[in-house]
Computed example of a mutant assay.
Amino acid sequence: MSVKQKSAFQDLVDFAKWHVWTRVRPSSRARLAYELFADDHEATTEGAYINLGYWKPGCASLEEANQELADQLAEAAGISEGDEVLDVGFGLGAQDFRWLETRKPARIVGIDLTPSHVRIASERAESENVQDRLQFKEGSATDLPFGAETFDRVTSLESALHYEPRTDFFKGAFEVLKPGGVLAIGDIIPLDLREPGSDGPPKLAPQRSGSLSGGMPVENWVPRETYAKQLSEAGFVDVEVKSVRDNVMDPWLDYWLRKLQDDSFRKSVSRLFYSQVKRSLTSDSGMKGELPALDFVIASARKPGA
């Protein structure tokens, strides 16, 4: 098959992938997206993170921003030496390898629905000879397969928006945490669009079909105050839901708009994938249109007890 024929064939394959993705139920889109577009992963993530990142002033690298986001979540969770940690929806597990090095917990167990994530993270753990302290398993965030009071910390980095529903994850995390244990989540939720100081109920934009809000079950379309209330209703105390969107959303979009102008990126992915990414990031019907209605939060909550 010639190079031109291969390119045309790949475009047909990618078109089929996109066709499937846009027609499945929202709660299934995240898993399909990660599986279907695995071939384009390295070109679109700059490393092993699959996140928006936390962009400090002067940060120009997506990898650096993602490391900072992982550090922010570890700090919110209070991960420390000797802890038993459960990381839910771990992606490719990049944050877990970082935490193992920088925070030195006794063990991190990751659980994720996507088989390729489990395989890739497990292979890396074996290659780095840390499989005794980093273990990755396939499973559901809303039906955690662990006993009560097993972990000191439970984390979820930019994946809880997809859980169906997220409140079941809150309940499960509370169950598997030891007394005094902490749940910490980096999450995407709708922004309360009320003017500062306004009374009345939150004002939320309608949920869209884009790649972020479109992958969010309708039950999860709640603002910060409801999010905090749901954590309290699950039994948690010391609940904090802090917005960090100014360090996440716009800097991430600016980064990608610059990357779209990079000819090497365009050549590294299929034509359909490039056109879909460009359309999403530059049109009001895509990411450009949905980001103004979205918030990025770091939430933390403690299970009462010792």
Score class of each variant (00 low, 15 high):
Met1His: 12
Val3Cys: 13
Val13Cys: 09
Ala16Asn: 14
Trp18Gln: 10
Trp21Met: 11
Arg23Asp: 03
Ala30Met: 15
Asp39Ser: 12
Glu42Cys: 11
Ala43Tyr: 01
Tyr49Phe: 15
Asn51Val: 07
Trp55Phe: 04
Ala60Arg: 15
Ala65Leu: 06
Ala65Asp: 01
Glu68Lys: 09
Glu68His: 10
Leu69His: 02
Ser80Trp: 07
Leu86Asp: 00
Phe90Tyr: 01
Asp96His: 06
Asp96Trp: 03
Trp99Arg: 07
Thr102Val: 15
Ala106Thr: 09
Ile108Asp: 05
Val109Phe: 02
Val109Lys: 01
Asp112Leu: 05
His117Ala: 08
Ile120Arg: 13
Ala125Arg: 02
Arg133Glu: 08
Phe136Tyr: 10
Glu138Ser: 10
Phe146Pro: 00
Phe146Cys: 06
Arg153Gln: 09
Ser156Arg: 03
Ser156Glu: 01
Leu161Thr: 05
Tyr163Ile: 04
Thr167Val: 10
Asp168Ile: 00
Phe169Leu: 07
Ala173Gly: 08
Phe174Ser: 08
Lys178Ile: 06
Val182Thr: 13
Ile185Thr: 09
Ile185Trp: 02
Asp192Ala: 02
Glu195Pro: 06
Pro196Cys: 02
Pro201Asp: 03
Pro202Cys: 00
Gly210Trp: 03
Ser211Trp: 15
Ser213Gly: 14
Pro217Phe: 08
Glu219His: 12
Val222His: 06
Glu225Gln: 13
Thr226Tyr: 11
Lys229Met: 11
Ser232Tyr: 11
Glu240Asn: 10
Val241Pro: 01
Ser243Phe: 04
Val248Met: 04
Leu253Tyr: 03
Leu253Asp: 07
Tyr255Asp: 04
Arg258Pro: 12
Ser264Gln: 13
Ser285Cys: 09
Pro292Tyr: 00
Ala293Arg: 00
Leu294Met: 11
Leu294Ala: 07
Ala299Gly: 04
Ser300Tyr: 00
Pro304Leu: 05
